[in-house]
Design a binder for these strands. Structure first.
Lengths: 260, 260
DNA sequence: CGAATATTTGAGGCCTATCAAAGTGAGTGG
DNA sequence: CCACTCACTTTGATAGGCCTCAAATATTCG
């Protein structure tokens, strides 16, 4: 076992006092939103709620009356087979929307569940629709989000279908590292609250095999993880192993499209 | 080997004379489009082109100047690992859009390629954006499409991550059967031009294993396929095997949302 | 009718699953 | 501050599903 320094506080403390902390929300990192639109969104959401880990915000096949936006903590979108096996179709980190399609579909075909203690903000469907109608930038942002989710999910399909367990894990860690904005030079470190069982449900593996795969990555000095924190000592090498190219995440310069 | 009757003409003949045959296009099966909007779309697209099988419409990481809409034949969206393995992230049948995210992203992170001889219509990006701005229904339709693709891809992830080869194949056939509108009572039959290699790239399997899996399905009397045609003698039983619930395809009554 | 493409079959091996149990760490209550 | 519990991680042994490599057969199309 590698003796590692502590990297980050294990789980960020949740501050109930600040109200809906939407400032970090990815929803307007896509530079579609004017200051006015940001304000409109901020005042349309319901007060943030603290939700315990492993709690369904929406169950599979439920109706959802609101869009759920993750403000702090981690959550996921998941589906289950008739045999009861679970597969995640998205990890949601602060700024992500859990159920975008509630905008247009009555019923979900997946569940949304917290992975950790989390702060969740709800945006009632009617208000979301009204905002989309009234503010063009918000409508664009919704579309942008839907397309981004598609891009990420497409890469997950590639991993699930065609990559070995170690490649999958490497790719996922690279993805999260970028999405969390945790990279600096060739290193990255971030709070990593997932259990190996949750990782297994993302990667389409068993928890036991995830454990063994993590050990391989550790042995190769590609990750250092202790205390719910993750450190990537050599991002370039991890990317190479996972076949990861960050272009699909469009972090550098989101396209500015004039639509709607 | 089961001796089966011929079910359908192997590949539909392509009629070049009718111009852009967009009438079957899913783009306006979501009942968002007024007659005027349909007309606007129809006159915005470039003349249909016939494209040979296994031809890239856009290569991975290419810029695309147009949205590509499949009018006849089949195509796919795909990505490849650095080792060269290919995984499809979507099958495109008549009515599907190949590269919706060209609306907002400069560069694709996947390729679009024909699987069969196909008729393809191009909708220049500028025109698509303009249409989305001018006609609210068209903007809605784009969003609806993006969300639908997400729903389908989410189920693919579930299959890839958590289902056995026979369940995956069963689920895929059920999906296609519904999307092609080929079901009647408990039976379904449709032209099925995919090679086993192409199937393998959808299912995350090897061609050899796909072959053996098909044989299992045949032995169980769940499929009858000859001459590039597919017949499902007992849809209910196939659905049960694949854990397929058609709700996520939203074929019955698309929600009518008032957005944008 | 012949070449190219696609399907089918066989044998053997590897990666990941399964089942079971031990070890570790965090939180709780006495 | 120390048992105690619960959840998570780790380890071991075995099995099985799918892959790999190779070649034969069938089908399509010029």
């Amino acid at each position: 076992m590698i003796a590692a320094q502590r990297l980050d506080p294990p789980v960020r403390q949740i501050d109930m006092a600040d109200g809906p902390q939407l400032d970090a929300t990815r929803l307007w990192q896509c530079d579609f939103l004017s200051r006015e639109e940001q304000q409109a969104l901020r005042s349309a959401v319901l007060p943030a709620k603290s939700v315990r880990p492993h709690t369904d915000l929406v169950r599979e096949a439920d109706r959802a009356g609101s869009l759920f936006i993750v403000v702090d903590g981690w959550a996921c979108r998941y589906a289950t087979t008739s045999a009861g096996a679970r597969q995640l179709s998205a990890v949601l980190v602060p700024g992500d929307v859990g159920n975008l399609d509630t905008l247009m579909f009555d019923r979900l075909d997946y569940g949304v569940r917290t992975l950790t203690q989390a702060m969740i903000v709800a945006l009632p469907r009617d208000r979301a629709l009204a905002l989309g109608t009234r503010y063009p930038g918000i409508g664009q942002a919704f579309t942008w989000l839907a397309l981004m989710e598609n891009a990420v999910l497409g890469k997950w399909a590639l991993s699930l279908g065609r990559r070995s367990s170690i490649e999958r894990l490497a790719h996922l860690l690279c993805e999260l590292s970028v999405r969390l904005g945790a990279e600096k030079d060739n290193q990255s470190s971030f709070a990593f609250p997932l259990t190996q069982e949750q990782l297994a449900d993302m990667l389409g593996l068993t928890p036991v095999h995830v454990n063994r795969t993590i050990q391989q990555l550790r042995a190769a000095d590609l990750i250092v993880n202790v205390h719910r924190a993750m450190m990537l000592p050599d991002v370039a090498r991890l990317r190479y192993l996972g076949g990861f190219d960050p272009a699909y995440l469009r972090v550098d310069r989101p396209a500015r499209a004039n639509i709607f």
